[in-house]
Design a protein around this nucleic acid. Structure first.
Length: 152
DNA sequence: GCCAACGTTGGC
DNA sequence: GCCAACGTTGGC
């Protein structure tokens, strides 16, 4: 059982959208490291923090569950999509995504500043300067600390 | 295969 | 909108 932090621009897709949809394919990831996490490391039942970036404030907004296993990201085949990749084929997809299911919305957003201020979060990759990875692993402790902060 | 230039991300 | 960080690209 692993834990993840999955970042998304709040204006694109937020926790309320996921609550409404119940589940969604986490498409559009075009970074190899993040792809490998989804394709190789995530397993059905893993839990993730849904993180809002470019938000007021940016931070952890809720919990999602990985349906797993990874599937091909359909947007890579769609010429009209900004995520289209001419080098990808149906036979050999380059990009993968996970279907994620809504689990819960936090009572309040746990801001990135609160995470910075909490010693238990100090190793989180998301807090590293210049971090641009949209999917990062979390330890069980980090996951639980964020959940706990959301209750306060 | 090096590395400079470029583009993107994302907090502020 | 600024700017630091860093992944990607492409010339050599």
């Amino acid at each position: 059982m692993k834990y993840w932090l999955m970042k998304n621009e709040v204006s694109d897709y937020c926790i309320d959208d996921l609550a409404k949809d119940k589940s969604t394919a986490w498409t559009g990831v075009r970074n190899y490291q993040a792809r490998n996490f989804m394709r190789d490391e995530m397993a059905p039942g893993d839990l993730g923090i849904f993180y809002h970036s470019n938000a007021e404030p940016s931070g952890a907004a809720g919990i999602l569950r990985i349906q797993g296993p990874a599937i091909a990201d359909e947007t890579q085949f769609d010429k009209k999509s900004k995520y289209f990749d001419a080098k990808a084929t149906k036979e050999k997809p380059r990009w993968f995504c996970q279907v994620v299911k809504f689990r819960s919305k936090f009572k309040r957003v746990v801001s990135i500043q609160e995470m910075r201020d909490n010693k238990a979060c100090k190793n989180m990759l998301i807090l590293r300067p210049g971090n641009r990875l949209s999917i990062t692993p979390l330890s069980k402790q980090e996951f639980e600390v964020i959940c706990k902060m959301s209750e306060e």
